[in-house]
Amino acid sequence: METATLFVLLSSLAGSDVPVGASIAQELTDIHRGMSPRSIGYLDAGQIQNLRAVDREPHQAYGTLHGFREVRRVTGIVMGPDSATVFRYGLMGSWQSGGWTKDLYLASAPSLNQSRTRWAAGLAARHLEQDWFAAAGWFHVDPESWKDDRGYRTEDPDNALWAQGRFRRFGMIAATGTDGPRFARIGYLPDPEPFGKYAKKWFLPQLEAALNWSEADWNPWSDQAAFGAEVRAGLLAERLSGRLEAGMDGFRLIQLQSNLDPEGNVGVDLSWARARGGNGPGIRLRVPFLTFSMNDPDDIAAFGVSGRGIVWSLRIVMTWEKSQGWYRPGRRLSSGGGS
């Protein structure tokens, strides 16, 4: 019993790892910003891991271990089946798995590792003329446990229900577990309408704002339940944009984004964030299909990996409005029809 208490204490002292709930909150937010009523598909796939070993992973038998955290994810939404109708419905599915590993692996860890898998599934619908999109579903996290011959459970399973909706540029997200609400967000969302050559380059169409509330276990920024506010403002037809987020728990992040193309597929984002792992800079390089990041606060939150040390990610995030037109969630097609 004393040993178990000691390990719980060590875990809490080392508790700068972002909890898994924060990853679904971030994922729902990405979907929220990305899926407009015109969207027909969404894809988020990637891998994120520590690039430098970190300490403080307690193991009942071995001691305090020195290793890495790595996570992989695939999330998709497909709307269908009849593209001619104004009302369409679709399916959402998400799988994410990972945890502590004793070494860096590009594939699954072959031996001693601490692993956790989470799933999300849901239904989606949209109406083109009424300009709304909605989705709702279930979120499940398997127990976390050590995968070795003396494996034991370190975290219990968890479940939550979530829903999100969007009407024109106004949207909301809500998620609740058996023990109460987990996450909520209301936002003035990005407009997927293409910029014309001379139209809509003034300030308001480029403005985005949101209020959110996270339960402590779903908050990627701190270990307390807190309200937060977020503002994003673009310039030069969103070729440059700034983002500021803060909450009752203090400053969260500031980010400067640049886009070399209208769809936001090519660019560099620089940030300074105060995640659970501490303050630090981050950089994200976007090229078609892929993003690479070092300590990017969004990717750290999205995958539930601590910002301690160096965290890198390789990720694909895209939204479709037609089979030949895709862009990053939160961005818009060019007037020429997209990439």
């Binding site: 001691g63 305090t64 271990l65 004793k102």
Partner: peptide
């Protein structure tokens, strides 16, 4: 050794 860290 099977793993790195402060081992017992």
């Amino acid at each position: 050794l099977p793993v790195a860290g402060d081992l017992n």
